[in-house]
Nucleic acid binder design. Structure first.
Lengths: 174, 174
DNA sequence: TCTGAAATATAGGCCCT
DNA sequence: AGGGCCTATATTTCAGA
């Protein structure tokens, strides 16, 4: 995980852009775009991965299609000092937490949470509040995305493992 | 881009999981895991894309490696009614905004912003506040990620066009 | 859904600058 | 160090059935 800058030139930039647009683009095709052979592109991609510029390749999924229709940000306030280490442990206990970070401001941490519906979200929230560290939470529910294709709109969701139901078999309230 | 779920079974679930873990996994390898031929896997992936479950494949990039070292969430308060349509226009004017959504609570919208450094972030913030609609903003800076590999930690950033330590113009990915 | 063959892509080896 | 060319191995893709 060296974050050491080796050289990062124009060509690397273009290659990364191409792979962000479509991670399955062939090296030959990228090469044709940037003016390199497939081999050269592959070598650069390998290097970009080794140096940690590219950390992986992933499918972007529309959470709603998998039955994840509810999304919220949760500000977390902790008892006394909240060492990030212990917060990280807590966060790992709840698969519905798709992102978590320490932040400036009154709260100690900000969580991004995905749930199937409001009922499920309430359950997650109660679970989180049960954690010994947590003093209080403030939730902000996401209503609609203004940038539909932004990664946070589509990419961040629990793995389908955690999806209790199928896209074609979503539980109804009541 | 029909958002209607056709059938979505166990096999699809596994395929999606595999592609989320590594979008460049070969269909043959996925097939070996789930007990299908490469051809069958490809057909299912094609269908998952057609039905909009999978919206694309992308490289995940460590923003810091490209010179994006500052990240914040910005709550936006608007003058009077804030039609999402107009908010969306405003948001599109600022490539550093990597996600934007309307939310419950006091604020009208929540923005996710990436900048090269605090100076750059301040500049972005001033630009945003200049927009006719915006009445006030409250910023929460991200200090550290508790889930290092969550998509929001690594995937969401402006395109590498703007990378490096250069203060050149910025464009939106895609 | 599988099989099988043809078209593509990849991962190295090797040599050049 | 980085790039191109070549080749063996995999993979994708398109026919069948």
């Amino acid at each position: 995980m060296s974050s050491r800058p080796t050289s990062f030139d124009e060509l690397d930039r273009k290659i990364v852009t191409a792979l962000m647009a479509n991670a399955r683009t062939s090296f030959a095709e990228i090469g044709a775009d940037v003016g390199l052979s497939a081999t050269a592109v592959k070598r650069r991609v390998d290097r970009l991965r080794e140096t940690g510029v590219i950390t992986g390749f992933t499918a972007t999924v529309r959470p709603a299609a998998l039955g994840w229709r509810t999304e919220a940000y949760v500000e977390v306030y902790c008892e006394g000092a909240a060492p990030p280490r212990r917060l990280a442990e807590v966060v790992r206990n709840h698969p519905e937490i798709t992102a978590a970070m320490t932040v400036t401001g009154g709260a100690d941490a900000l969580l991004h949470v995905r749930a199937r519906d409001v009922e499920h979200f309430e359950e997650v929230l109660e679970r989180i509040r049960t954690e010994p560290f947590i003093r209080k939470t403030i939730s902000v529910m996401v209503l609609s995305h203004l940038i539909p294709d932004s990664p946070e709109a589509g990419t961040s969701q629990p793995a389908p493992e955690d999806a209790g139901e199928r896209a074609s078999d979503v539980r109804r309230p009541g």
